[in-house]
Simulated assay, not measured.
Amino acid sequence: MSDYIWFEGIPFPTIGFKRETIEEVRNNFLIREEDTVILTYPKSGTNWLIEIVCLIQTNGDNKWVQSVPIWDRSPWVETKVGYEALINKEGPRLITSHLPIHLFPKSVFSSKPKMIYLIRNPRDALLSSYFFFRETNLVKDPGSLGTYIKWFLKGNVLYGSWFEHIRGWLSIRELDNFLLLSYEDLKRDPRRTIEKICDFLGKKLEPDELDLVLKHSSFQAMKENNMSNFSLVTEDTVTNGLKLMRKGTTGDWKNHFTVAQAEAFEKVYQEKMAGFPPGLFPWE
């Protein structure tokens, strides 16, 4: 791939995205109070969270998640196809977005949708992005992990800077219609985290229904579900076969970063994340 669509200094893929759509979404897309919005930086557990929320909505019944592609169940609002699907959809909508807060629909601040923001150790998000996107035509090929780390730290990757994304969305973390979750907590204690999501959404599940949500949103279940593992993506976006589900672990970055790369990342991380309260991020 030779280039991106650049919008206000942030790169987006040329496939499936248009500058006009991103502008239209920000200024004119109406978020409704009954909507549920899933917000993440890329490769932070987005599809896992979508699957969980879909299963919560169906009381653990997996018919929906096994019959409808994940991008149709919860469309990405900033994509051309997702935007068109959402503006024509009636009733409560499940909406997904990787947009930073300043590009997200302005209407979100005059309504009170349920917003769930899932964060992940940026080192793991970086590594996951590196392995995932190089199998697609969506990004420039960095050639090496070292180059990709430099791009990531400068924000020259899809959807821009992880640090700015986090700072922007966490500026509204005290709102009662905003739920902050972490990939690490979801891995460590999925049952408790799913219960927290249920409480936030006002959805009461029986113990056996909760068991079904856990079962059908497991890494193995999603890996085997063609509606959730992106195996249905068309060839024009894929080069070597898209593998959405790689490892689904935490801390894998330690197996790939050199000491020098880890130190360089930590230096920028400490500078960019100064001012956040201790204990906010589970990877620290």
Rank of each mutant, 00 (worst) to 15 (best):
Y4A: 03
W6P: 03
W6K: 02
W6D: 05
P11Q: 05
F12H: 00
T14P: 04
T14M: 04
I15H: 02
G16N: 02
F17H: 00
K18H: 05
R19P: 00
E20T: 05
T21D: 04
T21M: 08
E23R: 12
E24S: 07
V25T: 04
R26C: 05
R26H: 12
N27P: 09
F29T: 09
L30H: 11
I31D: 10
R32I: 09
E33H: 12
E34A: 08
E34L: 10
D35C: 11
T36S: 11
T36F: 12
V37Q: 12
I38N: 09
T40G: 09
Y41L: 13
P42G: 08
P42T: 04
P42E: 08
S44C: 14
S44P: 15
S44M: 14
G45F: 15
T46Y: 05
T46I: 08
W48L: 08
E51F: 03
I52T: 10
V53A: 08
C54D: 11
C54L: 11
L55M: 13
Q57Y: 14
Q57S: 11
N59Q: 13
N59W: 15
G60T: 12
G60K: 14
K63N: 12
W64G: 05
W64S: 10
V65N: 09
Q66Y: 12
S67A: 09
V68L: 06
P69L: 06
W71S: 05
W71H: 08
W71N: 06
R73K: 13
S74Q: 08
S74W: 11
W76D: 00
V77A: 02
E78C: 06
E78G: 05
T79R: 04
G82W: 01
G82T: 00
Y83I: 03
E84Y: 04
E84T: 00
E84C: 04
A85L: 10
L86G: 01
L86D: 02
L86S: 03
L86W: 01
L86I: 01
K89F: 03
K89T: 07
E90Y: 15
P92R: 11
L94I: 13
L94C: 07
I95T: 10
I95L: 14
T96P: 07
T96H: 12
S97C: 11
H98T: 01
H98E: 02
